[in-house]
Design a protein around this nucleic acid. Structure first.
Lengths: 228, 228
DNA sequence: CCAATGCTTCGATTAGCATCGAACTATGAA
DNA sequence: TTCATAGTTCGATGCTAATCGAAGCATTGG
């Protein structure tokens, strides 16, 4: 009778309303921070913290540390499948959450991640920088090449000043909506703030979305289509 | 955080150990009575009664009255699938239980599930019995073929005596560690107890592991390698 | 260095619920 | 009818875990 895997342990993990809300919020596939999940779940940060650590140690979530943030995501497709199955069982009178409003589309295209550029445009910039040889991604480290440095200087960034600071110059930041990396670090921040200074884009004051002007987007594209 | 399907309600239903045991017992596909389920779950009849009524009103179980008995079964295949998914998550993610000590390896290889053989050897026996035509798995039912019956009789099992009893002769039981079925039912029990009588194996008095002797394992292999 | 932000740990409180003994109802058999 | 078996309801008990306030770390920015 006490045979088999401990499904009660897993099920009771999912069975708490706050944790169920957290898991449901993560069904969208994006990773969210602890604070975001706390507000999704409708509990305080302390409570969410204990829930999240339980979910991680229970194998339902995985954790990515990124600076002073912690990003949580579902651990695997199997987890998502089980949750989907549970939703099916539970859908007697309930309806599925609806997502992907117009705001989400803007967020997906371009948004700030702390103070650097993320979303489609952020990841394209990163990929292109690597392809053009501006960034050198050998081994685990990410470094700015001499070519990349001269391009950045031409763009109006004080690379030497940044390099003197303690903070790392270049860092990869996993972009969860695109499932690939974008550029973080002090260079990433400077790059974005330079774009804002140039009038290419501005931040949505209400959220994390970044709105490029038409001219700004053209300039951005031209910047990326420089020949190697 | 708003309203979605109430997966927490369903999950917390499964999340109680006693109810999880009940559901697991019903995974075999057979309907069981309230008393049987009480003993499967390891709780008293009163406790089981409240659990069962919750499971029914939660939509996980269906109820069939038959005389003064109440037979319970899983409400649908979807329920079974969710349970199976949970078993998968629990088996892979439950790092506390999945430490592979020497004892766990023994458990994985051979153990008792109630009173029949489970684990690698149990599932191999089941598969081989089906392959040799001893068991007929057409449709949902599992039956002992005439050939299988004569082999069982030769092995020293009173098949007719078992068939007269109330308990089902053959039953499939999903083996969580192997993800396939092994043989349960009164035949499964008799088969295992006969192996013990023959000195092939004995139960670990401290746990559920089954320890085969060297000769016993040889005999077991010879038994399975009979030609069809 | 200091301030701000994101997250965690601690302690105390609270609420829910699983559990069982005992008494009760219902069905079937002699 | 009377007895036996199957299952339920009730009340009391005790344990677990969710929750939040407050304080403590850790990282980042200036």
């Amino acid at each position: 009778m006490k045979e088999g895997p401990d499904i009660a342990r897993i099920a009771s993990l999912i069975g708490d309303p706050a944790r169920a809300n957290i898991l449901t919020a993560l069904m969208a596939g994006k990773a969210l921070t602890a604070s975001e999940l706390a507000s999704e779940a409708g509990v305080t940060a302390q409570t969410a913290s204990t829930h999240l650590s339980r979910l991680v140690s229970g194998g339902l979530l995985i954790l990515r540390r990124q600076g002073r943030h912690k990003y949580f995501a579902l651990a695997s497709d199997e987890v998502a499948k089980v949750l989907e199955g549970l939703m099916g069982l539970a859908a007697h009178g309930g309806h599925l959450r609806t997502r992907t409003g117009p705001k989400d589309r803007a967020m997906k295209k371009a948004r700030v991640c702390y103070n650097h550029l993320a979303g489609e445009m952020g990841t394209r910039l990163f990929d292109r920088f690597v392809g053009l040889g501006y960034l050198d991604r050998s081994g685990n480290s990410l470094r700015l090449s001499p070519l990349g440095k001269s391009v950045m200087v031409d763009f109006g960034i004080d690379v030497d000043g940044l390099a003197g600071a303690r903070a790392p110059l270049c860092r990869e930041c996993l972009d969860w909506s695109e499932r690939t990396s974008h550029l973080a670090g002090s260079l990433g921040r400077s790059l974005f703030s330079r774009m804002v200074d140039l009038g290419w884009a501005k931040r949505d004051p209400a959220g994390r979305a970044v709105i490029f002007s038409a001219k700004g987007e053209q300039a951005f594209e031209a910047f990326l289509s420089a020949k190697a």
